[in-house]
């Protein structure tokens, strides 16, 4: 990986290229397969893995059975109150056993971040001209954007989610993500410990046909703040912890699924203020007051909430799925009540 960096050819871009090449080279070969029943490939979750909206499932993405390879592209758009998430990626499922995924997420921020950026810009300009100390926070006056790349892999270990209706054994898969957040300065400002980190998960998925219900339970071992969009860990370090996630889906028709999801989030940055040039913002309070911006300081305490969503996924055919959801993400860093609509499109080969 170090070598890839030196060559100025990011590993993640290489992975994307690899996935894209695989996807195109298998499209017409004997390995190509799309033999799964409609909708049973699931949709693409925001980290790029096959699953629900925010939770990876034990299902392998795409429509390939154990006889071949299949893949998909996804685009997810979530305009929340103060942030907008765009997530674009590709994933390939191999022999219904193994899955590789790549996703690039960008989170544009607004309001509070704009205000902060403006303040820091002004304050930074002052300290720069007075003391030759520019302040670098990673927050721009307008439209600060957080970028993150996620590489994922998943392997199905045992079990059969769909056809083993005569026992309780779920399909079980283990997987991992490697996430690279590009906003070093901003994450320092927000107090995160790391910008890059891995997380691992184990998922169990089962369909209960007599009650038209799918249940997925996932345990994710991670130190992520807001899935890594706000980095990993906090002032107390970045020890990982196990966080549960649950998806409950009702099969409404053979091409329509509705459901709810819950994902436990951490509290690494809860109560944490914003740090500038090694100083907690509280020490900047007098400066802010001088500038007539005393009200800003009060909004600078970060919090993180568990994520919830309610979704409807529609599968008009095996080449397309459309997932619409209402996402309730609660507190995201400095801004509360981040709820909004979520749209995810998945194109399968």
């Amino acid at each position: 990986m170090e070598e890839a960096k030196r060559n100025k050819f990011p590993l993640s871009k290489g992975a994307a290229l690899f996935v894209a090449m695989l996807a195109s080279s298998i499209s017409h070969g004997d390995l190509f397969d799309s033999g799964k029943v409609l909708a049973t490939g699931g949709v693409s979750m925001i980290d790029g893995a096959g699953g629900g909206g925010i939770t990876p499932w034990a299902t392998i993405t795409g429509y390939a059975t154990k006889e071949g390879i299949n893949g998909d592209l996804h685009y997810t758009y979530a305009p929340l109150a103060n942030y907008t998430l765009h997530s674009v990626g590709a994933a390939v499922g191999f022999w219904d056993r193994f899955e590789l995924s790549y996703t690039s997420s960008s989170l544009t921020t607004g309001s509070t971040f704009d205000t902060l950026g403006l303040v820091f810009d002004t304050v930074g300009g002052l300290t720069d001209s007075v003391a030759g100390l520019p302040i670098s926070t990673g927050i721009e006056p307008f439209n600060t954007t957080i970028d993150m790349e996620v590489i994922g892999a998943k392997v199905r270990v045992f079990g059969e989610a769909i056809y083993d209706s005569d026992n309780f054994i779920p399909q079980v898969a283990v997987g991992a993500f490697y996430k690279t957040n590009k906003n070093d300065e901003l994450l320092t400002t927000l107090g995160a410990d790391k910008t890059k980190d891995w997380e691992a998960y184990i998922s169990a998925t089962k369909i209960f046909f007599p009650i038209n219900t799918l249940i997925n339970i996932t345990a994710r071992y991670t130190a992520a703040n807001q899935t890594g969009l706000v980095g990993f860990g906090g002032p107390d370090g970045s020890d990982k912890e196990i966080r549960p996630e649950i998806s409950l889906a009702y099969l409404l028709r053979k091409d329509t699924v509705i459901g709810v999801e819950w994902a436990k989030h951490g509290d690494n940055l809860n109560g944490q203020s914003v740090e500038i040039a090694g100083l907690d913002l509280t020490s900047l309070q007098p400066t802010l007051e001088t500038l007539g911006l005393s009200n800003v300081a009060g909004t600078l305490t970060q919090n993180e909430s568990d994520w919830y969503d309610a979704f409807v996924a529609f599968f008009p055919n095996k080449n397309l799925s459309i997932t619409m959801a209402y996402a309730m993400l609660g507190n995201i860093t400095l801004t509360p009540d981040q709820h909004g609509f979520y749209l995810s499109l998945q194109a399968s080969f």
């Binding site: 059969e160 769909i162 056809y163 083993d164 209706s165 005569d166 209960f208 046909f209 007599p210 038209n212 099969l251 409404l252 028709r253 053979k254």
Partner: peptide, 15 residues
């Protein structure tokens, strides 16, 4: 669809 899934459940283990 709900009635159909009773049958799918019944036949699925024949896989």
């Amino acid at each position: 669809y709900e009635a159909c899934n009773q049958l799918i459940a019944g036949l699925a283990p024949y896989k």
